[in-house]
Design a protein around this nucleic acid. Structure first.
Lengths: 254, 254
DNA sequence: TCCGTCAATTACTCCGACATATTACAGGAT
DNA sequence: ATCCTGTAATATGTCGGAGTAATTGACGGA
């Protein structure tokens, strides 16, 4: 799910001023255009109310066909970033209309320098939802859920969080909790936010070693869920989110 | 924001087998196609894993150009409903990939007969998020927030919830609370869910008169927020959500 | 049995033309 | 002078077709 990273695309700079879009492997042209425009909007390069250049002009500037450009605009429109009307052109919508919880939008938001306030907002929401999810999981988990969590926890012990397998195990663990809530809406929400926030974790890790062994805190959550102790599960998960917040905050210098 | 309602579009059934899409006023053709396919997917008419007909075939069947059809598919792709690959075709993604919190997707989910379990999931999430939002609002509101809430409350008293102005005032009240949280992520999330759930409220109202005067419960929330009493605000909002759940459940016969 | 090669199918991209809707301006009536 | 109305300009929306690129599945060889 995290297939679009910054990628430091140094544009081919020989073409006379035209900023061609770079389409990575497995990414269609219109997807690349959407990525480019999406990050531009999320980074504030285009402000709400701004009107984009006309289709023909902008498509030519990007050196793509009008069809591909239009399909990209449809994507942005679907995510509430822009709105197009005949004669009026395509304008950036106010931020309140943006689907900020859309996984791709979150990816664009974190593609460049993430907005500190927005990261805080996400953590605040996470601190509300995740403990509640753990509470529900403690009430509804079955043997299969527990087995998956147990395996993920074992994998986390084997590989550290510095490795890709370790992070995958971490994701599996949290996903297992969300699955145990039996609530699709919560699953989607938490998965989106978690994935986005974990991207910042990657930045964090290159800056400094992990400040603390995360296993014991995870075990506390696991034990509480196994015991069916809803209150303890919520409390333990709250600790986990708080720790993640502290790490991220210190890594971002905020 | 609630511009696409069920609309009971009994398709023109006289044309020889070709199911033309009906494009309402102010809705582009590709938007109408996306609506049609989106509701078809959300209603289970296309199951995850199903492969749609080829572009040429499906576009011809809908009697639209491939451009319009493709732009509609891009919208569905952007919302995580489908995925297209050369040679493999366009297939419906597993439900866990759907952006169920996207306002438009929620609209499609409630266009036909809403899934009882999904409504329950949404209310469960709402019961977690809304009280927390009220708690934050009580801590962070300023005079301007209070004024807006006060005005909305007054408007709710003048007009009943049976009128459009009354419902607008209700929305304003809740939006004011969300704004007071100073959390964009929570604002977007809660607004989406609230809007979607309120659609079911419309069904409810045609079936039976409002079972209870909602004003006093709203006043309790308002007073707590004005007083800055976070705990009381959360508790009062919890009551509000519970009441809405009861009403909706009884109206849906669940 | 496994792996590389090839061909067929499908989505992807491009192009040019026309249709439609919305804005903006000009003109006239009040 | 102001407001309304009709008209023309302009940008998006839709169309149809042609050609490209990529993935898959089958075929054949190691």
């Amino acid at each position: 799910m995290g297939q679009d990273r910054p990628s430091t695309d140094a544009q081919g700079a020989e073409n006379g001023g035209s900023a061609k879009v770079a389409r990575g492997p497995g990414r269609r042209l219109h997807g690349a255009i959407a990525h480019k425009l999406g990050t531009a909007i999320l980074s504030g390069q285009y402000a709400p109310g701004d009107v984009l250049s006309g289709e023909v002009a902008f498509a030519e500037e990007l050196d793509v066909s009008r069809s591909a450009y239009r399909e990209a605009i449809q994507v942005l429109t679907a995510k509430g970033l822009v709105e197009s009307r005949p004669k009026a052109g395509t304008r950036v919508l106010p931020r309140t209309r943006w689907n900020l919880l859309d996984p791709e939008v979150l990816g664009w938001a974190f593609a460049g320098e993430p907005d500190i306030q927005f990261v805080r907002d996400l953590f605040e929401l996470r601190a509300i939802v995740e403990p509640a999810a753990a509470r529900l999981a403690a009430q509804r988990r079955d043997k299969n859920d527990i087995k998956i969590m147990k395996d993920a926890l074992a994998a986390m012990r084997r590989h550290t969080l510095a490795t890709e397998l370790g992070r995958a195990a971490d994701r599996d663990f949290h996903n297992a909790i969300l699955n145990a809530t039996r609530n699709d809406a919560m699953l989607v929400l938490s998965a989106s936010i978690g994935a986005a926030v974990n991207w910042t974790t990657q930045y964090k890790q290159r800056a400094r070693a992990l400040p603390r062994n995360p296993i014991p805190d995870h075990v506390r959550v696991f034990d509480a869920i196994v015991a069916g102790d809803a209150a303890a599960a919520a409390e333990a998960m709250g600790v986990l989110v708080d720790l993640a917040l502290e790490d991220t905050a210190s890594a971002m210098g905020g």
